[in-house]
Simulated scan of single mutants.
Amino acid sequence: MKKNFMKWFSFTFGVTALFLTSTTVQAQTPSPAAKKQNITIGATVGDFADLVKHGLRPQLEKKGYKVKLVEFTDYVTPNLALAEGRLDANIFQHKPYLDQFAKEKGLKLSAVAQVPTAPLGLYAGKLKSLDEVKEESKIAIPNDATNLSRALTILSDLGWVEISKNANPLLVGTKDITKNPKKLKIVLLEAAQLPRALADVDYAVINGNYATSAGMALTSALTQEKSDLYVNWAVVTEKNKDSVFTKDLVEVLNSEELKKYANTKFKGYKFPTSWKK
């Protein structure tokens, strides 16, 4: 009797131990479904917020995520919120800005995938074509350092001005103009004011987001910046760059479904360089 009881006890204890061990191992190894989570993406108001709402969120939700969008109207808060963990990703900035901001603030952020971006363009004011440019034509351009540099690069690409070869390509200013054969009058204005200034100048170099906000088609630009350097990125924290969510985000951003949406919604935009391959 005692011998039979000990056999029963040993069998029961063994099965119980096996069950507990199995349960413990399963608890320590989350299933793919357990890795799906509520995620928060920050984006600036306008086209990037629309990209999240109509391009990214539907596909991410199919993958099991619940996506919350937080919209911003400035270029400082989204990176701070990301670094503090209040966001899982943000979409609003190009790489030169990210690198400089992260360096100045000591943040560990990683750009993971490019997104469709409204480029700077030269738009017609009083003069309606590039061929009409003349002596002392008045051209309004953004007055902030980054966009000023980009605007002058557009004028340089047109051959309207020449820039010093020693100038920092990311910080070109009016002081770096070495030749201005047509004596163009360059007017520096706040970027947001440029669409309204078109009636008073011959041409204006306008940020894509301000052009679209003013109801201007990007395809109406007489020329756009050529460089892909200022195509914007989806950004995450460095510690999360290899996370399941980041991999899913990158997959969606390079999906055929998103490309189809972008080709309809973002005409005249510069698209990710990876889409051209």
Rank of each mutant, 00 (worst) to 15 (best):
L170G: 05
D99F: 03
T212I: 12
S137R: 07
I186R: 03
S227H: 14
K3Y: 07
G14I: 09
T273P: 02
A124P: 08
I206S: 01
N143S: 12
V205C: 08
S110C: 02
N79F: 15
N207D: 14
T153R: 13
G268V: 00
A33S: 11
A17R: 03
E238G: 10
D144V: 09
L155S: 02
R86D: 14
F245I: 01
N254G: 11
K63C: 01
N240E: 08
P195T: 08
K66L: 10
I186P: 02
E136Y: 13
A211D: 02
T273D: 02
G125K: 05
F11Q: 05
D200T: 11
I163P: 03
S149E: 09
P32G: 04
T21Q: 07
A192P: 09
V231H: 00
Q59W: 08
L229D: 14
S10G: 09
R150L: 14
P119D: 01
P119Y: 00
E136V: 10
S220A: 10
A27Y: 07
F19H: 04
K138W: 06
K277Y: 11
A140F: 04
V76T: 15
S10V: 15
K277P: 09
L229W: 14
E71R: 06
Y210F: 15
E225S: 07
K128D: 10
G173M: 03
T174G: 06
V250K: 04
F5P: 05
G14T: 12
P96W: 05
V172M: 02
V252M: 10
I154V: 15
Q193D: 14
T212A: 00
A49D: 01
D74W: 12
K182M: 11
N90Y: 14
N90G: 05
L98M: 11
Y203C: 06
P96F: 13
G64F: 11
F101P: 03
L120M: 14
K241Y: 02
P181D: 11
F271V: 01
K259N: 08
T16Y: 06
W233A: 01
N166T: 09
E136P: 11
E162F: 09
I91A: 06
H94V: 03
M1Y: 08
L158H: 12
L184N: 07
V76L: 13
T273C: 04
K53A: 07
A102I: 15
A43Q: 01
L130Y: 12
V76R: 14
P116A: 00
N147Q: 13
T223V: 15
S164V: 05
L60I: 07
W275E: 04
L249I: 02
V172E: 03
K138C: 02
K108W: 08
S213P: 03
T23W: 12
E162K: 14
F92Y: 13
T174D: 07
P58N: 07
K2M: 10
F9D: 08
K2V: 05
L82R: 04
F5R: 11
T40M: 02
N90T: 14
W8T: 09
I41K: 00
N166M: 07
K126R: 10
E225R: 04
P96D: 08
K179S: 13
K105G: 06
L171W: 11
G268S: 01
N168P: 12
Y261H: 07
A217W: 02
Y269R: 00
K7G: 07
P169Q: 14
N240C: 01
K95P: 06
L155P: 01
A27M: 05
K179E: 15
E162G: 09
G85R: 09
V172W: 02
